[in-house]
Structures are given as structure tokens and as C-alpha cells.
């Protein structure tokens, strides 16, 4: 599975110009606030339209300005878990997870739609939550349900926007391990926004470091530690300051 996002866009005061590609199963997008991380995720999802560029996922062209290709969001088959998880508050956990499954598959008790949603909840270890509403869930449970909902459509790529940021320290540690196991098991191509180097390490991710809409460095956490190009990279990698700064 491979992906590439070459994007040029002006978003408010931010001028975004990046050329990203997947270098492994999980890719991390790291950068200070307002560096364009969430904008990139939303652009890949199709909620924002760049001025120029192309988005390719697993051989499929989702967007290419040159040819005028711009697939509608619903046709991109992308799993998106926003900050705050984006669970629909008026639907039960089961209805949330089944939301993206074809309605033609049947919604009754014996329906394939229901059984697929339940199977995914079971895989995420939260089938007992199926009858609850999002407001009754803990942060970690919401995260698992949101993940189940995004994965059940078998997405070409999974986009996670700071998936662990809202969790307390213990839940974050457990969820990080859970996320690493699940993504590895499913060999799920993933692009994740994070502020935490432990996420990059635990998920064995390649990191792209963004500053003010530009990529300043990429590589594994080890690479970033060895040769941080900016103070932000050095601080993120936990090595103090960049050489010569």
C-alpha cells in the first residue's frame, strides 16, 4: 500500500506546499499549532480543495489538478477520525459503526450490516458498548468506537487527527499499545497527526515534520534525534536544540 499527497493551497494566513508520501504502514504528521497538519488530513479526506497537486492512494487517483480529477468525499473510501472522535451523538454505538456500511446489506437483527458492525466492535474489544450512546462512553471507549467505525469500511487509508490527545495518561498508554497492535494486525495504511514522540516510537512510524505549511524534515524518530534540522524537531525528538541554532 502506498500513498502520496502533493498539495499546494492557501488556507487563511497559511500557505501550504507539501509533498508527502507513505514510507511504511503508519506515517506521523508532526508540527507546531497552525502548521497545516489538520488541513492536510481534511484535504486528503476531500473536505478541502487544494489549488494544485495530486492525492494518490494505493494506485487510485483521488485528486489531480492537472486532469481535473477530484473525487467526492463519499467516493474516496477514507477512514477519518477527527479530534474529539466525531461520533454522532444521536446514534447508538452500533448505529455509529454501521453508518458507513451499505444500507442494502440490511439493518435487521439478522442483517449483514449489523453483523459486520458487531464483528468490528468485537475486534476492537467493545461489543458490550453497542447499545450505548456516545455521551455515556469514556474517552478511550469513544476512541475505540471511532476507530471501529473508520475501519469497518475497509478504508484505503486511515486518517487520525491527534487520536490520543484527549485521553488521560493511563488511557493514552493503553490506547497507544492497542492502536499499534490493531494497525499492525490489519496492515492498515495510516496517516496520523500527533504531538507526542512516544506515538511515533510505539507505532514505528515515519514522521513528517511540518512548520508553517512546509516539510522541514522526515524520517524515523531515531533519524530525527541524530540530526534535527530545526529547534522544533530537536525539541520534539527530545534532544534540546538543533546544531548551530
Amino acid at each position: 500500500m502506498s500513498w502520496r499527497a502533493r498539495l499546494q493551497a492557501a488556507v487563511g494566513p497559511l500557505s501550504l506546499d507539501v509533498d508527502l508520501h507513505g514510507l511504511g504502514t503508519v506515517t506521523a504528521l508532526v508540527g507546531p499549532n497552525a502548521s497545516g497538519k489538520t488541513t492536510i488530513l481534511r484535504t486528503i479526506a476531500g473536505a478541502r480543495h487544494p489549488e494544485r497537486g495530486e492525492i494518490l492512494v494505493d494506485g487510485a487517483v483521488l485528486y489531480r489538478s492537472q486532469d481535473g480529477v477530484d473525487l467526492a468525499m463519499e467516493d474516496r473510501r477514507i477512514g477519518y477520525v477527527p479530534q474529539g472522535y466525531g461520533l454522532f451523538p444521536h446514534l447508538t454505538v452500533l448505529d455509529n459503526v454501521a453508518f458507513g456500511l451499505p444500507r442494502a446489506e440490511g439493518a435487521g437483527r439478522g442483517g449483514r450490516r449489523r453483523s459486520r458492525a458487531l464483528a468490528m466492535l468485537e475486534e476492537m474489544g467493545c461489543e458490550e458498548l453497542s447499545h450505548r450512546f456516545p455521551k455515556d462512553l469514556s474517552g478511550g471507549e469513544k476512541q475505540r468506537v471511532a476507530l471501529a467505525r473508520a475501519l469497518v469500511i475497509e478504508p484505503r487509508i486511515l486518517l487520525l487527527d491527534e487520536p490520543l490527545a484527549a485521553l488521560d495518561a493511563t488511557s493514552r498508554r493503553l490506547m497507544r499499545r492497542f492502536l499499534a497492535d490493531k494497525l499492525r494486525e490489519r496492515n492498515q495504511t495510516t496517516l496520523m497527526v500527533t504531538h507526542d514522540p512516544r506515538d511515533v516510537e510505539a507505532l514505528d512510524a515515519t514522521a513528517w515534520i511540518l512548520e508553517a505549511g512546509r516539510v522541514v524534515q522526515s524520517g524515523s524518530l531515531e533519524d530525527l534525534r541524530k540530526n534535527p534540522r530545526t529547534d522544533f524537531v530537536a525539541e520534539f525528538a527530545g534532544v534540546g536544540f538543533a546544531p548551530g541554532s
Binding site: A72, E74, Y80, G86, A150, I153
Partner: peptide, 18 residues
Amino acid sequence: IDGDLLITARTLGASRAG
């Protein structure tokens, strides 16, 4: 309504009307 809910719904296959 949080705009992310609508983006999520679209990525899950819902049209604008959906």
C-alpha cells in the same frame, strides 16, 4: 454542529444530502 461530524459522515459514504 461540529463540522467534523459532517466531514466524518461524508467520508463514511454519505452524500451532502445524506
